[in-house]
């Protein structure tokens, strides 16, 4: 599965990279690569079996702790 994801993300990058390079904006390129890298890492982690905590569940816990009586 990791290979599939690597190929998938790699292909997406390969497709968009030329136009980004042509754009000639370093900021664009950097942002793109950082965010794609983040997405890639998260996807790989999930397929490997590392599950991150649920984001909205954490929000729910915070709100319940603060506003317990109103909810």
């Amino acid at each position: 599965m990791v290979i599939v994801i690597t190929v998938f993300v790699g292909m997406l990058v390969c497709l968009q990279l030329p136009s980004l390079l042509k754009l000639g904006s370093r900021r664009d390129l950097l942002t793109y690569l950082i965010l794609m890298g983040l997405a890639y890492i998260l996807m790989v982690l999930r397929t490997v079996g590392v599950h991150l905590p649920y984001v909205t569940s954490a929000i729910v816990r915070v709100f319940k702790a603060v506003l317990g009586r109103f909810i």
Binding site: S25, D28, T31, M36, L38
Partner: peptide
């Protein structure tokens, strides 16, 4: 302050 909007669509 990016140059192109399309940069971010895929990420």
């Amino acid at each position: 302050g990016l140059k192109s909007d399309r940069t971010l669509v895929v990420p």
